[in-house]
Nucleic acid binder design. Structure first.
Ligand SMILES: [Mn+2]
Ligand SMILES: [Mn+2]
Ligand SMILES: [Zn+2]
Ligand SMILES: [Zn+2]
Lengths: 137, 137
DNA sequence: TCAATAATCGGAACGATTATTAATAATGGA
DNA sequence: TCCATTATTAATAATCGTTCCGATTATTGA
């Protein structure tokens, strides 16, 4: 087994992640901290995000073949993903707590987590791209 | 606008995808067809899977920084993802039809699709890795 | 048949992530 | 406090899935 040490970099990476609800990428966290740590490496951000995930402090949200995103809110909750801009939002009005599921599927797969996402077009993108016939004059 | 033409490659890619329920990757489809089309290019498989998705014949299942998977079953249904081996399964006993959701979220995001996944350890991996204390003698 | 152009092939390019290595610094014990 | 151990860092190279490119081929409608 391996013991974790506390570093300024890891502490700040977690703090930055806790300060936003935009589900940032590793590169976004890096850009936020590179002035505070002029010698910070992007690899360090990636490695620490992985360690924080192992420790249960953050959750990794896969985003197709593009970049992963991270969330410091580790309680299960659904997300809305915009297919136009790629934005990932919390949906304050919706929760996944009421959806129940068995410990095992009929095929014997052990379930430890449920992931729920809604896909579509986010409010800002709806403003920008009015559907044909709704164009403002 | 652009018109689609019919090619042997695209036809067979769709047929191969319809012949399995393992939610294959582009590379898997390529391996299946490279003998039938000795000059087949992996790029051709990728491009056609994207076109088939545009046409609504297949669905892309994103898997973070690993490879994407494809499903020729385009009606919405949940999947089980094994965190040990990466396997992706249909869950015949579960459906997402009963879960209702609004057309728009409270924040005004337009919902067009719901994606539901269960994560855990699949039955074959449970066999292989018995939990401590359950080791067979 | 024939021109227009979508699709293919092979390989290069790309972007996100991971691995490598030597230097650095956090940690626990003397 | 000082020191030995070793986890962590920074810089960079390597990897990996995917997309793009240019030249060639094949489909399509007229
Ligand atoms: Mn969230
Ligand atoms: Mn499926
Ligand atoms: Zn958007
Ligand atoms: Zn498995």
């Amino acid at each position: 087994m391996q013991t974790y040490r506390n570093t300024k970099q890891r502490t700040r990476i977690l703090e930055v992640l806790r300060s936003t609800d935009t589900h940032p990428t590793a590169a976004w966290v890096y850009d936020r901290l590179k002035f505070e740590f002029p010698s910070l490496s992007l690899g360090t951000v990636y490695r620490n995000l992985t360690i924080l995930e192992e420790q249960g402090s953050v959750v990794r949200i896969a985003s197709g073949s593009t970049f992963d995103r991270y969330d410091a809110v580790v309680t299960p909750h659904p997300h809305f993903r915009c297919l136009k801009c790629g934005g990932l939002y919390d949906t304050k009005d919706m929760s996944q707590d009421a959806i129940s599921y068995p410990e095992k599927t009929a095929s014997g797969h052990l379930i430890t987590k449920m992931v729920l996402e809604f896909h579509g077009t986010c409010a800002p993108c709806l403003e920008k791209r009015p559907a044909s016939g709704e164009m403002k004059i």
